[in-house]
């Protein structure tokens, strides 16, 4: 008899993450790659990578879950049992691996959030609003301007003696600030350290505004891989900031745990990775709201739809 395994996929705006875990929450397979604006293709690629790592002789996937901004689309694509928001997924994932965690800081490609935890359950959270300043996308664009790979930012920042003051409230202002610093001959590493400091400061003053940050603190999301930002957080907060080796996979891990706990089981097949999925956006004309309805097709037939504000716009699945 094959042992049970659980699949979790976290489809963010910038990256798509996938994990497969067993009953003991051990990672059997994992994958992290860029979404590149195409969540269906990214999911297929993730599934291909997972399939290669996954021991199908010993295990079978009995339940799956999706989270992240494309969770609905990919959820209907792979027939997920659990489709949940990324706040809950991250909270579940992190508290599973770090039961004593009190504060979760997360900075991703386009969003950032803080989750406050008490007794192993999230009690409060906040997310960035309209603006993506101080997220991964901000760092990437500045790296591009400096001609440095964003992956090297952390290492370079740690070499700096001091951080150049840079405003990170807005990418436009940060950029003009940055150009000014370059023109006055400020060393590159100090500018990069300044950017890292700006990201941490921006986060604490905006997303985490008014939230009580209690130790132990876990920092995750793509930006947590940047050692410069980690150090700036530690300096600002005056407490150690833990970065989990699997921090970038925490959402996918959390949703896999939730899929396991749902106790809903059905057969999952990697075949979906080779099927054709298309989405179509239809504007409903039945009332003045003109809802944008998303229709998902698998190999040409409609499998799911959403986006209608009322039943008039419900699209029938044949």
């Amino acid at each position: 008899m094959k042992k049970k395994a659980y699949l979790g996929i976290d489809i963010g705006s910038i990256s798509t993450k996938g994990v497969i875990i067993n009953d003991d929450n051990e990672f059997l397979a994992e994958c992290y790659l860029w979404t590149e604006g195409n969540p269906t293709r990214a999911t297929k690629n993730v599934l291909h990578v997972l399939q290669e790592q996954f021991d199908q002789e010993r295990y079978r996937i009995v339940s799956s879950g999706t989270t992240g901004s494309a969770r609905k689309l990919v959820g209907s694509m792979i027939g997920a049992q659990v489709v949940k928001n990324e706040i809950t997924a991250h909270a579940v994932g992190t508290t599973t691996l770090h039961p004593d965690v009190r504060t979760i800081l997360e900075i991703g490609g386009q969003d950032s959030k803080i989750i406050c935890v008490e007794n192993g359950v999230a009690v409060d959270y906040a997310m960035n609003t309209l603006c993506a300043a101080g997220t991964g996308a901000f760092l990437s664009s500045q790296a591009h301007r400096l001609g440095v790979a964003v992956e090297e930012f952390g290492e370079i920042a740690l070499k700096a003696e001091k951080a150049a003051p840079i405003a990170a409230r807005c990418t436009v202002f940060a950029e003009s600030d940055l150009v000014h610093k370059l023109q006055v001959g400020c060393p590159k590493e100090e500018i990069i350290a300044g950017l890292c400091k700006a990201v941490a400061g921006n986060y604490l003053n905006n997303v985490a505004k008014g939230k009580k940050i209690t130790a132990p603190v876990v920092f995750q999301g793509g930006v947590s891989k940047n050692a410069g930002v980690v150090r700036m957080f530690e300096e600002e907060l005056g407490m150690p900031v833990m970065v989990d080796e699997k921090g970038h996979l925490m959402g996918a891990f959390g949703i896999a745990v939730l899929a396991k706990e749902s106790q809903e089981e059905s057969v999952f097949s990697f075949d979906v990775a080779d099927m054709e999925f298309k989405t179509r956006e239809v504007t409903c004309g039945k009332c003045a709201n003109h809802c944008e309805i998303i229709c998902v097709y698998r190999d040409g037939s409609l499998i799911d739809s959403w986006g209608n504000r009322c039943d008039n716009g419900a699209v029938k699945i044949r």
Partner: peptide, 12 residues
């Protein structure tokens, strides 16, 4: 997403 997370917090 925000409301769903919020309701989750209350329920859990």
């Amino acid at each position: 997403t925000r409301i769903e997370s919020f309701i989750d917090i209350i329920k859990y």
